[in-house]
């Protein structure tokens, strides 16, 4: 499959944006600049970026608690994302959602869910609207290997398949749900094997390779837009950091061995994409480094933006509850 240079460079930019955003989040979170959980996406950037590069702004996504990567991959703004983590009025959700609940309805990001599996039927619903109205958009639900065991996932896949809905089920299989190994909790070898039970294609993809993710997702999107129904894609990947910031202190006992982590770190998705670009003469080392440096800058500006944005005022507590407000009880 031919991928144009702009798309490849956009993917590299978004992957560096996520990486540098997450590094900054780890830094400021440990400095105590904001509280609350935050789940780093470091190591998994190619999955969301490759997948979202196959989407248009008019397509929809939903996601989960590991929620910074999806919106950035879909073209979301890092300043509004960072301000949300800081709980400020200029954040994506005016400080009401926080790290696990980023959303940008202007570019089809319907919202990240802290309750796992919960946002997958929602993505199916967006696809249902496209199906009923004859619109050409598709929707994509991001979920983890852990969440793939939720009943909602299985109900959604069956429903989407019988109605031939334009939805892509995108499993980020980083092989662990907090401390629980995928091998101990999923009865099949691969999450994508489950597709056959719902009579849809299941694709197992190298989730460290953004190009592979892009190609697989493009095929699923084409199928969805053609009215042929859903696809289950499993991006096999690995989370390089702790499950969530601060968790390392509380979990008792190691659940991943150092050798395994080191092995996966050798397959850094940024190295893999840069090597592809450089070896194929699409970009130079300098161009790649410049993209990295630009995103470092942008994240730095976003952090200043967040720090300088005010906190919501007490009366904002009651805003945004209803479309047609009702009196307080």
């Amino acid at each position: 499959m031919e991928i144009d240079r702009d798309t490849l460079l956009l993917m590299l930019r978004r992957m560096w944006m996520i990486r540098n955003f997450e590094l900054k989040v780890m830094e400021v979170h440990s400095a105590g600049e904001f509280a609350g959980a935050a789940h780093p996406y470091i190591g998994e950037e190619a999955v969301a970026v490759g997948a979202c590069a196959a989407l248009e702004d008019t397509d929809y996504i939903t996601g989960n608690h590991r929620s910074h990567g999806h919106p950035i991959a879909k073209g979301g703004r890092v300043d509004k994302a960072m301000a949300e983590l800081y709980g400020r009025v200029d954040g994506y959700c005016k400080g009401k959602g926080g790290s696990m609940h980023l959303a940008d309805y202007s570019i089809g990001i319907l919202g990240e869910s802290g309750i796992l599996g919960s946002s997958v039927p929602v993505a199916v619903g967006a696809a249902l609207a496209a199906h009923i109205r004859g619109d050409k958009f598709v929707s994509m639900a991001f979920f983890g290997d852990g969440a793939s065991n939720q009943g909602a996932l299985h109900e959604s896949m069956n429903l989407a398949s019988v109605w031939k809905l334009p939805v892509i089920f995108l499993c980020e299989n980083n092989q662990y749900a907090v401390t629980t190994s995928y091998a101990d909790t999923v009865a099949v070898d691969h999450v994508s094997d489950r597709a056959s039970a719902y009579n849809m294609p299941g694709m197992l993809v190298d989730g460290q390779d953004a190009v592979a993710m892009y190609e697989a997702t493009s095929a699923a999107v084409a199928r969805a837009r053609a009215g042929e129904g859903p696809t289950l894609i499993e991006g096999l990947t690995y989370r390089f950091e702790e499950h969530s910031l601060g968790l390392g202190r509380v979990a008792r006992g190691a659940y991943r061995d150092e050798a395994e982590i080191a092995e996966w770190r050798k397959r850094d998705p940024l190295d893999i994409l840069e090597n592809t670009l450089i070896s194929q003469g699409i970009a130079t080392r300098e161009e790649c480094d410049a993209i990295n440096a630009e995103t470092v800058d942008e994240v730095e500006k976003a952090t200043d933006f967040a720090r300088n944005s005010p906190f919501p005022e007490p009366e904002d507590l009651f805003e945004d509850m209803w479309a047609n407000p009702i009196p307080l009880p």
Binding site: A35, G36, E84, G87, R88, C93, G95, K96, G97, G98, S99, H101, F311, P312, E313, P314, D316, L317, F318, M321, L328, P329
Partner: peptide, 12 residues
């Protein structure tokens, strides 16, 4: 508790 959902930001 007020009849709203729990906002993330500590200021609310």
């Amino acid at each position: 508790s007020e009849q709203v959902h729990i906002p993330y930001t500590p200021s609310l």
